[in-house]
Design a protein around this nucleic acid. Sequence first.
DNA 1: TATGTTTATCGTATATTTGCGATATAAAAT
DNA 2: ATTTTATATCGCAAATATACGATAAACATA
Lengths: 108, 108
Amino acid sequence: MAINKKQEFAEPELMLADFAKALSHPARVAILKVLAEQKVCICGEIVEVLPLAQSTVSQHLKELLNAGLIQGTVDGPKSCYCINWETFARFETIFKAFFQQTNKQRCC
Amino acid sequence: MAINKKQEFAEPELMLADFAKALSHPARVAILKVLAEQKVCICGEIVEVLPLAQSTVSQHLKELLNAGLIQGTVDGPKSCYCINWETFARFETIFKAFFQQTNKQRCC
DNA sequence: TATGTTTATCGTATATTTGCGATATAAAAT
DNA sequence: ATTTTATATCGCAAATATACGATAAACATA
């Protein structure tokens, strides 16, 4: 694209889009799923569950971190990740404010 | 990327990712917002509200259609769009099944 | 100190998305 | 029948995302 027009939109739209973007790849959804189930939390274990190389998984983890959907702590040479439920709750509120109206009519 | 690995993931992960991808651009969130508010529904009116060219808006509308988030009907020379709330409800169910567990502990 | 283990980052190739102008299409109006 | 109006699609350029191997960094262990 010639110019990036994203910054021309309002803050709530940008926030929702960023949240959705973080969820817009099945690998990241899968990561969040195993973290939510508390099956695993160490990076290396996540890599074993996914059909991707270690560097690729690390990249997806970084994106989830940047979006605030997970948090990580260093545990010796390993990294432990878990879901940041506060962020999920926050976006659920924004989402509802946007779309969950009482009047769900159609005009066509 | 060398190879597209998306098809290696399970169906629920793919569905959630597709839904999120449809919401992953502020223009599409903005379109859904004005449709939800029932301010406008005609394509040309949507174009006036957004800071994008007509062809670009038409492309975003097509993506929302493909994702099943909106539906459109031809009204003479115009096109009328509105939100498909059934799809929203369906994805809310999937989303909750994934992430809304009773036990939201952290391991780190 | 040297070595192995675990993870993050860099560089790079390729795929996809975004955006627009130009054009096609279809209906309405003149 | 021609022109106008409204929208979708095509073709292209530029930006982003995806994926991996190689390498760096940080720690534990021999």
